[in-house]
Simulated scan of single mutants.
Amino acid sequence: MDGGIHLIDADGTRAATWAFEGLISHCNRKHARACYVPSIRQGPPFECQYGGRIEMCEGTDFFLFLRAISTGIVYYDPALKLESATSAGPALKRRSQFRVRHQALAGLYRKAEQEML
């Protein structure tokens, strides 16, 4: 339980760490029951279009998450977020996330069902 997922650069330096304890807590709190709504973003001007189906998922398991990382289904997506862009003191914040393609969501849950709206 003291372990974690580590991002290591080419020189072997640890650039980031996600502790298992925090990941498990997040996984159980945020993803235990989830509804995913696929969308398509087009533009500019940017507009979102939503389809007529949703995916209801429940029963997430941290071991499913670890397996998905090891097989490449879940991947690291580094990003920056600019806050207060129009102010005198804008700030860049890291907003790195793990991502999964919508088609692979079911592999992260014990139960996943598509429903038409």
Rank of each mutant, 00 (worst) to 15 (best):
D9V: 03
M56L: 08
E21L: 09
R33Y: 06
G51K: 01
L80M: 02
G4L: 00
I8M: 05
M1N: 11
A85M: 05
K111Q: 15
L108W: 04
L23Y: 05
L66V: 13
L108P: 04
M56T: 00
C35I: 14
K93C: 06
V100R: 00
M116D: 13
T71H: 10
I5D: 04
S39I: 00
V37F: 07
A10L: 14
T60M: 12
C35W: 09
D77A: 14
Q42F: 00
L92S: 08
G107L: 02
E113D: 14
P44F: 02
V37G: 00
K30C: 15
R14Q: 06
P45S: 09
R33D: 06
W18Y: 06
A15S: 07
L66P: 01
Y75E: 13
P44S: 09
V100F: 06
P45I: 03
K30G: 09
Y109A: 05
G89D: 08
R53Y: 00
D9S: 05
A85Q: 08
R101N: 13
G43V: 06
I5Q: 07
Y76W: 11
E115M: 12
R101A: 14
F62K: 05
S96Q: 10
Q97C: 14
A85D: 02
Q49F: 12
Q97I: 04
S87P: 04
R33E: 10
A15T: 05
S87H: 07
I8D: 00
Y76S: 07
F98T: 08
A85H: 01
T71S: 12
M56E: 01
A32F: 08
M116W: 03
R41E: 03
G3S: 09
L80C: 03
K81D: 01
D11K: 14
T71P: 03
Y36M: 10
C57I: 04
G43A: 07
P45N: 06
G3D: 06
H31N: 12
K93D: 05
G89T: 09
R101C: 07
A106D: 11
E55L: 10
S39E: 01
A19D: 02
V37N: 05
R67W: 07
R99Q: 06
